[in-house]
Structures are given as structure tokens and as C-alpha cells.
């Protein structure tokens, strides 16, 4: 099982790495990070805060775009091109295929984020001439971004297990945007009454909470992130992704492939 999972995820990773589109995206993101010091020039003293905001937001946003962009085709392409025929005729369980694909894409995103993080730290070095102690807290921000990737990828996979690539992309992106405003949504739900309250509470629990995963402006201002939040977010992201993938597997297990 482990060797099959690792074979599938490695192949998924290899496919992404050999795709030129990925490089264009990464290059674009790196340029954006590198140009952040230019923004800094305009507002002296604030450059570091702006750099952290722009840099981490770029790492997050580009990762999410890549996650959705590759995620929608992850399974659909293998069905469309019938490469799944030669996989499923081997001792590969359908859930192993889904899980392997998921791990492969997450691996891609982590490696990608690592590259961008290196670019980001180089830019930071340029601005502040030497890294301080509280720059380590930025790593927590990056860690949370990776947790975001886990959730977004799992959601994309879930949608693509029953919908077309275009709709999967729209759904996944919409859910990401709604999840970003999770706090507002919760306030709304608490204030509402009757059916609206019942419905909006359900939405609050179903929609992934990207608001609490986003600590970018907090770390940009040098505020520490509590250990409790780190633990909570880790468990939350793992459980949420596991549930979404379980849903994807449940649907995929029963499907007649084209």
C-alpha cells in the first residue's frame, strides 16, 4: 500500500514539475515578492510590514491558484485520457489512487512554497539587513499557508470527483473566498434568528475557516501567534481535509468510469 501510494504521489509531483505552466506561475510570484521592496521605498519605515504582507499573501494566493488549477484536473484528466484504465487493472484500490494524487499535489505545493519562501527571506534580508528573532514567527505564517493548501486541495478534489473541471474550479474558489470571511459569517449567524440562523450556522460549520488560518497581518506587525492556535489550526486542517477526501473517495468508489 505504502509503495503504491508513494508511486502515485511521486508521479503526480513529477507531472507538475514537468509542466511549464507551473514555472510561469512561480516566476510571476517570485517577481512579485522581489518587487515588494520597491513598494517599501514609497513608505519609509513601513517597508518590512508591507514586504511581509505582500510576500506571504503572494505565497498563499499563488499556492491556492496552483492547487485549484492542478487539483481540478488531478482525477478528471486521468479519466478523460483513460490512463486510469491501466492503473485500476493493477492492484491499486480506488482510495489509494485518490489519496496518492492528493499527497502528490500537496508535495508539489509545499516544495513550491519552500522556493517562494526562500525568495521571500532573501527580499527580507535586503530590506532589513539581517534577520531578527521575531522573523522566525514568519515561519508560523508560512506553516499556516501550507495548512491552507491541505484544505483547498482536498476541497478541489472533492468537487472534481462529481463535477466538471470548470465548475470544480469555480466552487473551490468561491468556497475559499467565503472561508476567508468566516469570521463575518459567524457574527452574522449569531445575530440572525429562525431559519436564517439555522442555515447560516450550518454554513459556518461546513465552510472551511480560512480566516483563522490567515495570520499574515498579525505576523507582519510582529505579534506572536499562540501555541493554542497553532495546535487548533493543525487539527482543524487535518480533520477538514480528511473529511473532504473521504467524501471524494466515497463518490469515486462507486463511479463508472468513461
Amino acid at each position: 500500500m505504502i509503495s503504491r501510494l508513494s508511486a502515485i504521489s511521486f508521479n503526480t509531483f513529477r507531472e507538475a514539475v514537468r509542466d511549464r505552466v507551473l514555472y510561469n506561475l512561480i516566476l510571476f510570484a517570485l517577481l512579485l515578492v522581489a518587487s515588494a521592496p520597491l513598494f517599501g521605498e514609497i513608505s519609509i519605515g513601513l517597508e518590512k510590514i508591507i514586504l511581509v504582507n505582500v510576500g506571504l499573501s503572494a505565497i498563499s494566493l499563488f499556492g491556492i491558484i496552483i492547487a485549484i488549477f492542478i487539483g481540478i484536473g488531478l482525477v478528471a484528466k486521468e479519466i478523460e485520457k483513460k490512463t486510469l484504465y491501466t492503473i485500476l487493472s493493477r492492484p491499486v484500490r480506488r482510495w489509494e489512487f485518490i489519496a496518492g494524487k492528493y499527497i502528490g499535489l500537496v508535495m508539489t505545493l509545499v516544495v513550491n512554497a519552500a522556493f517562494m519562501a526562500v525568495g521571500f527571506y532573501l527580499a527580507l534580508l535586503m530590506v532589513s539587513r539581517g534577520l531578527g528573532k521575531d522573523d522566525a514567527a514568519l515561519l508560523v505564517g508560512i506553516y499556516f499557508i501550507i495548512l491552507e493548501f491541505l484544505v483547498v486541495t482536498s476541497i478541489t478534489l472533492l468537487f472534481s470527483s462529481f463535477s466538471t473541471p470548470i465548475f470544480s474550479a469555480i466552487f473551490a474558489f468561491a468556497l475559499f473566498v467565503i472561508g476567508t470571511f468566516a469570521d463575518d459569517l459567524r457574527n452574522f449567524a449569531w445575530a440572525a434568528t429562525g431559519l436564517t440562523r439555522w442555515f447560516s450556522t450550518a454554513v459556518v460549520y461546513l465552510v472551511p475557516n480560512f480566516a483563522s488560518l490567515n495570520v499574515i497581518s498579525q505576523v507582519a506587525h510582529g505579534q506572536p501567534v499562540s501555541g493554542r492556535l497553532i495546535l487548533f489550526n493543525t487539527i482543524y486542517a487535518l480533520l477538514y481535509s480528511a473529511a473532504a477526501i473521504a467524501g471524494a473517495v466515497l463518490i469515486f468508489e462507486r463511479r463508472n468510469l468513461k
Partner: peptide, 29 residues
């Protein structure tokens, strides 16, 4: 499934792999 092999009609394979890589992947599976 360990004991059977299958060639689909008009097969398409991962075209970013070389023949050796493809066979290695399938053999691993």
C-alpha cells in the same frame, strides 16, 4: 490484479514520462 495485464484500446500514456519511467511506475504499482 497482480496476475493480470491489460492493454486498453487506443491507449494513451503519461506523455511526460519516458518509456523506462512509465514501465517503472506501472511495475511499482
Amino acid at each position: 490484479k497482480k496476475q493480470i495485464g491489460f492493454l486498453p484500446e487506443q491507449p494513451y500514456f503519461y506523455d511526460y514520462l519516458s518509456a523506462t519511467e512509465l514501465l517503472d511506475y506501472y511495475a511499482q504499482l
